[in-house]
Amino acid sequence: MNRNDDKLERARQLLDGGEPTLEELGRAVALSPAHLQRRFRARFGLSPAEYLAQRKLGKLKSALREGSDVSAALYDAGYGSPSRVYEAGAAKLGMTPARYRAGGEGEELRWSTVDTALGTALVAASERGICMVELGAGERALEAKLRAEFPNAGLQRVDAGRDAFLAPRVRAVADALAGKKAKVEVDLLGTAFQKKVWDALMRIPQGETRSYAEVAAKLGAPNAARAVAGACARNRIAVLVPCHRVVRGDGSIGGYRWGLPLKRRLLQREGARLSVADAAVRNASAARGRA
Score class of each variant (00 low, 15 high):
Asp5Ser: 15
Lys7Ile: 09
Lys7Glu: 11
Gln13Gly: 15
Gln13Ser: 15
Leu15Met: 02
Asp16Asn: 14
Asp16Gln: 13
Glu19Leu: 13
Glu24His: 14
Gly26Asp: 05
Ala28Ser: 14
Ala30Phe: 06
Leu31Ser: 05
Ser32Ile: 08
His35Phe: 13
His35Asp: 02
Arg41Lys: 15
Leu46Ala: 12
Ser47Tyr: 07
Ala49Glu: 03
Leu52Thr: 07
Lys56Tyr: 00
Leu57Phe: 07
Ala63Cys: 05
Ala63Ser: 13
Gly67Phe: 12
Ser68Val: 04
Ser71Lys: 12
Gly78Ile: 12
Gly78Tyr: 01
Gly80Glu: 11
Gly80Phe: 00
Gly80Gln: 03
Glu87Lys: 15
Glu87His: 13
Ala88Ser: 13
Ala91Tyr: 04
Leu93Ile: 06
Ala98Trp: 08
Arg99Gln: 05
Ala102Arg: 12
Gly103Tyr: 11
Gly103Phe: 03
Leu109Arg: 08
Arg110Ala: 01
Leu118Asp: 11
Val123Ala: 06
Ala124Pro: 07
Ala125Glu: 09
Glu127Ile: 13
Cys131Ala: 09
Gly136Met: 06
Gly136Lys: 04
Gly136Gln: 10
Ala137His: 12
Gly138Glu: 01
Glu139Gly: 02
Glu143Tyr: 10
Glu143Val: 11
Pro151Cys: 08
Ala153Met: 02
Leu155Gln: 05
Val158Asn: 03
Arg162Met: 11
Phe165Thr: 09
Leu166Asn: 05
Ala167Tyr: 09
Pro168Gln: 04
Pro168Asn: 00
Val170His: 00
Val170Phe: 01
Ala174Asn: 08
Ala176Lys: 14
Ala178Val: 03
Gly179Val: 05
Lys181Tyr: 09
Lys183Arg: 15
Val186Thr: 06
Asp187Ser: 15
Leu188Val: 06
Leu188Asp: 03
Phe193Asp: 08
Gln194Pro: 09
Lys196Tyr: 09
Lys196Ile: 11
Trp198Glu: 08
Asp199Phe: 13
Met202Leu: 08
Met202Cys: 10
Arg203Gln: 07
Gly207Leu: 01
Thr209Glu: 01
Tyr212Ser: 06
Ala213Thr: 08
Ala221Ile: 00
Ala227Phe: 11
Val228His: 07
Ala233Trp: 02
Asn235Ile: 09
Asn235Thr: 03
Ala238Thr: 10
Ala238Leu: 10
Val241Leu: 09
Val241Lys: 02
Arg245Phe: 04
Val246Met: 04
Val247Ala: 10
Arg248Lys: 14
Gly249Tyr: 01
Asp250Trp: 07
Ser252Arg: 07
Ile253Lys: 11
Ile253Arg: 04
Arg257Pro: 01
Arg257Ile: 05
Arg257Ser: 07
Arg265Glu: 13
Leu266Thr: 05
Leu266His: 04
Leu266Tyr: 00
Leu266Pro: 04
Arg269Thr: 04
Gly271Ser: 07
Ala272Glu: 01
Ser275Gln: 09
Ser275Ile: 01
Asp278Phe: 08
Asn283Arg: 14
Ala284Cys: 11
Ala287Val: 04
Ala291Lys: 14
Ala291Tyr: 03
